[in-house]
Amino acid sequence: MPQSDTEAIVQLLNLYGFAVDTQRWSLFDRIFTEDVEADFSEPAHWHDRESFKRDFGAFHDPFDSTQHCMMNHMVEVDGDTAHAFTYGTWRLLRKATDGNPLWDGSGWYDDALVRTADGWRIRHRVCRIVWWVGNPQVNETIPGVSFKLDTTVLRGEADAGRVGFLRAIEGK
């Protein structure tokens, strides 16, 4: 049975969490365009899929286990382009740190997608962390590089016109 565009995009968004948790970075080729712009807040900003895969691999390799849950998918398709907004939660486990081996977080993903000959791909992703709890040393797998809490709330990003999904559904 053929999938609708929305179903295919939701499947793609869920594949991202699976790719990260299995550390199968080759699956990013099925998820992102070669020239993806991935903004996870500075300094975590990539301009191409290969460096995104390399750096995500290096960051995630030291974890004993991870779990990424993608949820509350909203998708707006317009021909061969689409926007999606997804909430995510994640648990990172690294026993090599002092104290609590867990770092849990929640945030959101704002994606711009394009239809390719091989299916839908994300060409621009913004990820912002809304909250986290646990040992911050767990997510510092590369000295000096960690994902930090973004104090910009979604409402403020929306009011500033920086949420692509909202612009898409409001027709702006």
Rank of each mutant, 00 (worst) to 15 (best):
residue 58 A to K: 13
residue 84 A to P: 00
residue 112 A to M: 13
residue 46 W to H: 07
residue 121 R to V: 13
residue 101 P to Q: 10
residue 157 E to Y: 05
residue 39 D to R: 03
residue 86 T to H: 00
residue 39 D to M: 10
residue 49 R to M: 05
residue 90 W to K: 04
residue 99 G to S: 06
residue 115 R to T: 06
residue 120 W to R: 01
residue 6 T to P: 01
residue 39 D to G: 05
residue 120 W to T: 10
residue 50 E to F: 04
residue 5 D to H: 02
residue 31 I to R: 01
residue 102 L to C: 05
residue 69 C to K: 08
residue 117 A to W: 06
residue 115 R to P: 03
residue 117 A to P: 11
residue 35 D to H: 12
residue 1 M to N: 08
residue 124 H to G: 04
residue 62 P to V: 13
residue 38 A to F: 12
residue 52 F to Q: 03
residue 82 A to M: 06
residue 63 F to N: 07
residue 142 I to H: 02
residue 61 D to E: 15
residue 57 G to H: 06
residue 91 R to G: 07
residue 30 R to E: 15
residue 161 G to M: 07
residue 132 W to P: 00
residue 16 Y to R: 13
residue 13 L to F: 01
residue 113 L to M: 08
residue 168 A to P: 01
residue 41 S to K: 09
residue 172 K to S: 09
residue 38 A to V: 15
residue 57 G to M: 03
residue 72 N to S: 14
residue 59 F to K: 11
residue 166 L to R: 03
residue 165 F to D: 02
residue 14 N to G: 13
residue 57 G to C: 02
residue 145 V to E: 09
residue 49 R to E: 08
residue 71 M to F: 07
residue 17 G to V: 10
residue 125 R to T: 11
residue 142 I to R: 08
residue 27 L to A: 11
residue 10 V to S: 00
residue 103 W to F: 14
residue 116 T to E: 10
residue 90 W to C: 11
residue 79 G to A: 06
residue 2 P to F: 04
residue 85 F to P: 00
residue 120 W to E: 10
residue 21 D to A: 03
residue 59 F to C: 07
residue 106 S to M: 14
residue 158 A to N: 07
residue 129 I to M: 13
residue 81 T to P: 00
residue 138 V to N: 03
residue 74 M to Q: 14
residue 167 R to V: 06
residue 86 T to Q: 01
residue 87 Y to E: 12
residue 59 F to H: 12
residue 6 T to A: 09
residue 10 V to T: 15
residue 161 G to W: 07
residue 170 E to M: 11
residue 71 M to N: 11
residue 44 A to H: 15
residue 66 T to N: 05
residue 36 V to Y: 03
residue 153 V to F: 04
residue 112 A to N: 11
residue 33 T to Y: 05
residue 138 V to S: 05
residue 53 K to V: 10
residue 31 I to C: 00
residue 16 Y to G: 05
residue 90 W to N: 09
residue 131 W to H: 10
residue 62 P to W: 08
residue 121 R to Y: 08
residue 138 V to L: 04
residue 136 P to I: 06
residue 163 V to Q: 01
residue 71 M to H: 12
residue 94 R to E: 01
residue 114 V to W: 03
residue 126 V to R: 14
residue 35 D to L: 07
residue 125 R to N: 04
residue 150 D to R: 01
residue 61 D to V: 12
residue 89 T to P: 00
residue 172 K to Y: 07
residue 119 G to H: 02
residue 21 D to Q: 01
residue 84 A to D: 04
residue 164 G to H: 10
residue 130 V to N: 08
residue 51 S to I: 15
residue 158 A to Q: 14
residue 111 D to N: 14
residue 20 V to M: 14
residue 76 E to M: 06
residue 73 H to R: 04
residue 3 Q to N: 09
residue 17 G to C: 04
residue 40 F to N: 08
residue 127 C to V: 14
residue 78 D to P: 02
residue 153 V to D: 14
residue 14 N to H: 13
residue 116 T to R: 02
